Simulated assay, not measured.
Amino acid sequence: MMMSAVLVGGCNNDGPKESGISLIKTTNPTPVAIGKNTKKELDLIQSVEKDIEGFKELYDVAVVKGKEDILVAYKVKHMQRFHMKKIEKKMNKLLEEKYPDENFIVSSDYKIFLEAVELEENMKDSNYSGKEAEKKLQEIIEMKKELT
């Protein structure tokens, strides 16, 4: 009886669908702009995502643009994890050269990636306001700063 209760409780499927499985497989989350979704902003974040996906060392990228910052969270292929500092340095250099007017927060941390995917999923909900999304993005950025 106890074993069946544990199994049923363990199989509970609450929470977002994509974020739960995003650590295991490639999810390719859609780049998201919080607030104004102008063509210029959408083109910018799609361009950023395309540039980052060009790195052969990576297999998944999440891009979220807030009012002032652009969060780029990515996952590194397993055998490339020894070169993470070099990959991040190369990525920062590319982003700063190509988009000098933008402020990028770049992270390879899985927790940051999960939070970015979850934010993207929440933004699909019409009840989730831009103010809430910006607040969540700032919390993710704070989390990134605490990790460094």
Rank of each mutant, 00 (worst) to 15 (best):
V32D: 01
E88N: 08
N28H: 10
R81L: 08
K25A: 02
Q138I: 11
K111R: 12
K93S: 10
V61W: 02
I87K: 13
I21C: 03
M2E: 13
D101E: 12
V106M: 07
K98V: 05
D51R: 02
I105K: 08
M84H: 13
V6H: 10
M1R: 05
K77P: 00
L95T: 01
V106Q: 03
V8S: 07
K98I: 02
D109N: 14
E115S: 13
S22C: 14
L58S: 08
T26D: 04
D43M: 07
I70G: 00
K131Y: 10
H78D: 15
L95N: 01
K25P: 00
S108M: 09
K25Y: 00
K145Y: 10
I105W: 01
N13Q: 10
V61M: 03
K124P: 12
K17T: 14
K144E: 13
M2F: 14
P100G: 04
M79Q: 15
E88V: 05
E53F: 08
Y99S: 02
G10F: 10
N92K: 14
I87G: 11
T27P: 07
T27W: 01
E115N: 13
G130F: 06
K36F: 04
S47E: 08
Y59G: 11
I141D: 01
Q138M: 13
N127I: 06
N127S: 15
E121Y: 09
L44C: 02
S19V: 15
S22H: 03
G66Y: 00
N127T: 12
V76G: 08
M79E: 15
I45L: 02
K25Q: 05
T26C: 05
E120G: 15
G15H: 05
L23Y: 09
K86C: 00
K40D: 06
L147K: 15
K39I: 12
E41Q: 08
E139C: 09
T30V: 11
H83A: 15
P29L: 04
A33K: 06
I87M: 09
K86V: 06
V106H: 05
M143C: 13
A5Q: 12
F55P: 04
V106P: 11
K145S: 11
N13M: 03
I87Q: 09
I140G: 06
L119A: 09
M91V: 04
A62V: 06
L94F: 01
T148S: 15
M1N: 07
N103H: 15
D51H: 02
E142S: 15
L147C: 04
I141H: 02
D69A: 07
L137N: 04
P100E: 02
L95R: 02
E132T: 04
E18G: 00
L23M: 08
L147M: 14
P16C: 12
E18A: 13
E118S: 14
S47C: 03
L58A: 08
E102N: 08
E68Y: 07
E68S: 12
E142N: 14
Q138Y: 09
D14A: 11
A73K: 09
P31R: 02
